[in-house]
Design a protein around this nucleic acid. Structure first.
Lengths: 252, 252
DNA sequence: GCCTGTGCACTTGTATGCAAGTATGCATAT
DNA sequence: ATATGCATACTTGCATACAAGTGCACAGGC
């Protein structure tokens, strides 16, 4: 069921095989289509994607370093749980760096930059009602990446992306499994930030970004209450003893 | 010549082969023992370390993501130059995050934490005169990592390490190729930071850390004047046309 | 002397095969 | 019925072999 979408996606581009495998798994994990704890079989993936295990392993090693999967040698590779420490760290990184980015963007922005930021916000509004809500997170990422470009610090985009992905996993889990997750206020915050940047109001840009990022963290414990299995650590068993299911029940 | 030290190092531990290769190359690159632009041959490394190309490639891919090597398919793998954008980004990341870390450390520190930080500083003094100056950078890294632990944000240690490594490359190039690089003031700054943390003076800790980090960046252009070849981009030729040396002149 | 075309050695990317270790399920003994 | 030991199918880690592409060197023509 997972793989039907994969086969569709690979033929699109002719990037290195490992890149494509990574992009695919990364997207599926961040979107919570592959759930925490779920087994990822190198052999099965290689067969389904018609490549050898070599690029598969390359992709899995990347994902492990990003904290999205964990590999237990001779045992298996699994989607990483939502780790509280990883979430707190990602939040802290975003809070610190995005504030500084907003400051720099307010200092350096050109008129053209402001136009591009406003165009990005318009896109977000377009997707708000019509398309899949998962797509909103891609547009949100684009907006924040654009801010990085304006601040002339493109080298930090990778760090911010990785941090955001961890937080997006929590937000998207909310979308699917917990209560509503309103997107409209986020767009309003974006608009306010751009307004401050357009006015070159450094202090306001930083403060508004602070408030914007701040809203992400608190919801994690709500999700943990509803879906504790997403937070289970590698060795832990969530259910009472004896409920242990056969090894591949999650995978097949 | 390079490899004599390598053979010594590998037998010490029994970590996964790829880990060891990565640790070795990483250390050599950050210490500027492998110079920017220098070719890294997968085959030669595999032969010298008595492993196959598979773990070598695993290590090189990690290093590429860290910005320490660059791979040109079907052409070769090379030590990355000192990239201005990478340096600025690393500086920015350190400035933002370390300030926040200092703030949190000042809030959360226990008496035991202060003791450990002071012990780390004592170590730095010990190495100041006696041992190799390269070792100081390891102790400096330990100190900053310890601060991360105190601030209860161990998850961000990896990001800060990677940023610091880029800046350390510049500093170590100074040690070898440019003027003097005094280490004693750095220890004094560490001491002042710890004092502020011990006093739980949040504002002072943040400000002192700001000044501490700030000192790293400016020296880069001085080095660029003395050793422009360290900053040459992949395709660029530093000398005038016709001075192009045979392909392996850097390697053999 | 200078320019052009071809061959070869070398590069990384990918596929495949082997080795070491783990967990499951079945057979056996109590 | 319960517990124990073992065979087996699976996992990842590593080694090796092949494929595709690049650039230098050198031979030949001008």
């Amino acid at each position: 069921m997972l793989m039907s979408t994969i086969e569709h996606a690979i033929s699109v581009s002719d990037l290195p095989a490992g890149e494509q495998v990574h992009a695919l798994l990364h997207r599926a994990i961040v979107r919570m289509e592959l759930l925490p704890g779920q087994r990822i079989s190198e052999n099965a993936l290689a067969a389904e994607m018609s490549v050898s295990r070599t690029p598969i392993r390359e992709a899995l090693q990347r994902l492990e370093r990003q904290g999205l999967v964990f590999v237990r040698p001779q045992r298996g590779t699994f989607v990483a749980p939502l780790n509280l420490q990883a979430i707190r760290s990602a939040y802290f990184i975003r809070l610190s760096l995005e504030k500084a980015v907003a400051t720099e963007a307010a200092r350096l922005r050109s008129a053209k930059d402001v136009e591009r930021l406003e165009a990005a916000i318009a896109e977000q509004e377009g997707v708000l009602a019509s398309r899949q809500r998962e797509d909103f997170f891609d547009l949100n990422a684009n907006f924040h990446r654009q801010l990085v470009v304006v601040s002339d610090l493109t080298g930090i985009a990778g760090v911010l992306d990785e941090a955001r992905h961890h937080l997006d996993r929590v937000r998207l889990a909310h979308l699917d499994h917990a209560g509503p997750y309103p997107l409209a206020p986020i767009i309003e915050e974006h608009r306010a930030i751009v307004a401050a940047i357009a006015a070159q109001d450094v202090a306001a840009a930083e403060q508004l970004m602070h408030l914007h990022i701040e809203k992400v963290l608190p919801r994690y414990d709500l999700l943990k209450a509803k879906r504790p299995e997403f937070f289970a650590l590698p060795g832990e068993i969530t259910g009472p003893p004896g409920t242990r299911r056969p090894r591949n029940s999650l995978h097949r």
